[in-house]
């Protein structure tokens, strides 16, 4: 069994999730190859190597949306019984879907763990907001595709090793590969990034308005924390999608997560419940967020946050 790890290459190097998955693949043992897509560099390949890839297949699709070409190229590389890891990110999901359709392979999504025992491969999923775990095994033939939730594994570089790099020619995918990227925009907020922050201050609809959401930013500023948000406020346009935490946003594991005016819907909980310490402020004493909070404050964010900010400023 060979393990392939999909690695999207960004300007900053391989995606974080690809390094998490490579570390897991390396620990599972066997032969590990990265399938890297995007503008490559020796530094990026070396990073993939250090995390466990002995081989890197590199495809640069230029300004084409990469999924069709990447799936076509991968289909030619993966064999019966091989494991292929993707992250639960936009581009990874696009490629996983197309590869599954092309090869007829089963794809297990939203995995938080992968188990290989003898010949069998299974994944663990969290359902119902993470309260229940489901284990599913692959039973058929063909490659086995797994889509992994970010932060399920910890990325650890091993000994530096330059991998063998093979350049993959861009396959002609005809009509399905016809989508083009005409411009790219970054919307990162200021301060530490959500993915790496040790402290996150996150706000929900309970803040009441985009203007009042400023309290979240202010507290984050004082604590050197990153700002997070629920989908409800992202959909309302108060903050950009890049700060959304949860099932369809980012998965975070900071040492402290402060949830302000957040109900604690299942789709939010799966993205933050593994934070080391959780503080929640909500005026509804029945709010589900309190079930995961180490300190739950039943109160009004418009009372508690200004006082907290004031007290911290006075220190």
């Amino acid at each position: 069994m060979k393990i392939f790890v999909f690695a999207e290459l960004n300007t900053a190097g391989p995606s974080t999730i690809s390094l998490e998955m490579l570390t897991k693949a390396r620990n599972l043992g066997g032969e590990v190859a990265a399938f890297a897509v995007g503008a490559g560099s020796d530094a990026a390949f070396a990073t993939l190597g250090a995390h466990g890839a002995t081989t890197v297949h590199h495809l640069d699709p230029g300004d084409a949306l990469p999924a069709a070409a990447a799936a076509a190229a991968l289909a030619g590389l993966v064999g019966d019984g091989d494991l292929v890891f993707f992250g639960l990110t936009q581009t990874d999901r696009d490629v996983a879907g197309r590869l599954a359709a092309r090869t007829g392979a089963a794809v297990l999504s939203n995995a938080v763990d992968v188990k290989v025992e003898g010949g069998s491969v299974g994944v663990v999923n969290e359902i119902l907001g993470g309260s229940t775990l489901v284990e599913t095994e692959f039973t058929g033939s063909g490659p086995r595709l797994v889509v992994v939730r970010p932060k399920s594994f910890t990325a650890e570089a091993g000994a530096a090793a330059q991998p063998q790099v093979h350049t993959v020619p861009v396959p002609d995918t005809g009509r399905s590969g016809a989508a083009r990227i005409t411009a790219r925009h970054a919307e990162e907020s200021q301060g530490p990034s959500l993915a790496d922050a040790a402290v996150i201050v996150s706000g929900g609809r309970g803040l009441g308005s985009a203007e009042k959401f400023g309290l979240v930013g202010e507290l984050a500023g004082i604590l050197g924390a990153a700002v997070g948000a629920t989908r409800a406020v992202v959909d309302s346009g108060w903050v950009p999608y890049s700060v959304q935490v949860g099932q369809t946003g980012k998965t975070v594991k900071p040492s402290v997560y402060i949830a302000c005016g957040i109900s604690g819907a299942m789709q939010h909980l799966v993205g933050m419940k593994d934070s080391t310490t959780i503080i929640a402020i909500n005026k509804d004493e029945e709010a589900p967020i309190f079930a995961v909070a180490d300190l739950g404050v039943i109160g009004d964010v418009h009372q508690v946050l200004p006082k907290l900010i004031q007290a911290l400023k006075a220190r």
């Binding site: 089963a106 599913t136 095994e137 300190l295 739950g296 404050v297 039943i298 109160g299 007290a311 911290l312």
Partner: peptide, 30 residues
Amino acid sequence: GQSITAVRPAPERAGGVKIKDEGEAHLEII
């Protein structure tokens, strides 16, 4: 090509404390 082999409850988070804000809750957060 897949089959569910087990369903089990996730390990529970240790319960925390819940307090009602009477004007001083920010001190507990600090």
